[in-house]
């Protein structure tokens, strides 16, 4: 009987051991290399928009918020801007009108592409990949979940890790940008309240190469 009892005990304990097994295996993160150019951070760029859900499909409107890498700030200038934000849409000051409501006129030579990798690993701009905004080919930075810089799920916009936006500015200089958050003050956790009321606030890191024609960072 005791052998039998031991066997039951063995079963019970092996069951418990299996129950308590876990296979956590934390990966390693690579520390960023010290860059020669400074990494700037811009917080809470408020790119609000209005959405009219009574139409099908919904109509988006509102003013685009323009940003100038040279000054590191937003601007209302008609001509002296590099990129512009409204909701999740990002325009460049280069190319043609694409037909979006309240779209600013593009007067510069800006362009963009998306680099897959770490921010610090992008040391050289590949000019052959640069795209202009275009009515037929769409925006240089595409919109839509998973197409460009963000994923959209469970009401939350999350910047995709490893997507670096590479820009040629309106006056032919270069900048790279990593969007960190779409919510006010870049909170660590996006609650439902934050998702609904504190959205469309961009926080991003960027590096600007002020020397004209220099494609290195």
């Amino acid at each position: 009987m005791s052998i039998k009892f031991n066997f039951i005990l063995f079963l019970a304990t092996s069951f418990l051991i299996i129950s308590s097994c876990s296979d956590d295996d934390n990966g390693t993160s690579t520390p960023p290399n010290p860059p020669s150019l400074p990494i700037e951070q811009y917080s809470n760029l408020h790119a609000d928009q209005e959405v009219d859900y009574t139409t099908n499909p919904p109509t988006y409107s509102g003013e685009f918020i323009k940003f100038d890498f040279g000054t590191g700030s937003t601007t209302t200038s008609e001509t002296d801007w590099d990129i512009a934000f409204r909701g999740t849409t990002i325009l460049v000051n280069g190319g043609d009108t694409t037909g979006i409501a309240e779209e600013p006129l593009r007067t510069g030579n800006a362009a963009a592409y998306i680099y897959d990798g770490l921010f610090q690993d992008l040391t050289e701009v590949d000019e052959s990949l640069l795209r202009l905004d275009d009515m037929y080919d769409g925006l240089a930075i595409p919109t839509g979940s998973g197409n460009g810089w963000y994923n959209y799920s469970s009401m939350v916009i999350t910047p995709i890790a490893g997507k670096v936006l590479v820009f040629r500015t309106a006056d032919g200089k270069y900048a790279k940008m990593e969007i960190l958050s779409y919510y006010k003050d870049a909170p660590a956790e996006i609650t439902n309240t934050i998702a609904l009321s504190d959205n469309r606030y961009y926080t991003f890191n960027y590096m600007y190469q002020p020397e004209a024609g220099n494609t290195s960072f």
């Binding site: 069951f15 299996i18 129950s19 097994c21 296979d23 295996d25 990966g27 390693t28 993160s29 690579t30 960023p32 990798g117 770490l118 921010f119 999350t158 910047p159 890790a161 490893g162 990593e178 960190l180 958050s181 919510y183 870049a186 909170p187 660590a188 956790e189 996006i190 926080t203």
Partner: peptide, 30 residues
Amino acid sequence: VFGRLAPNQPVFRLERSDYFGLLNRSRHMA
């Protein structure tokens, strides 16, 4: 493949050993 620990944290590169597999599959069942 890249990841972040939280939305506002720095990005890092993931290793093959970090890949868990398909959704909703448990490694052990008993």
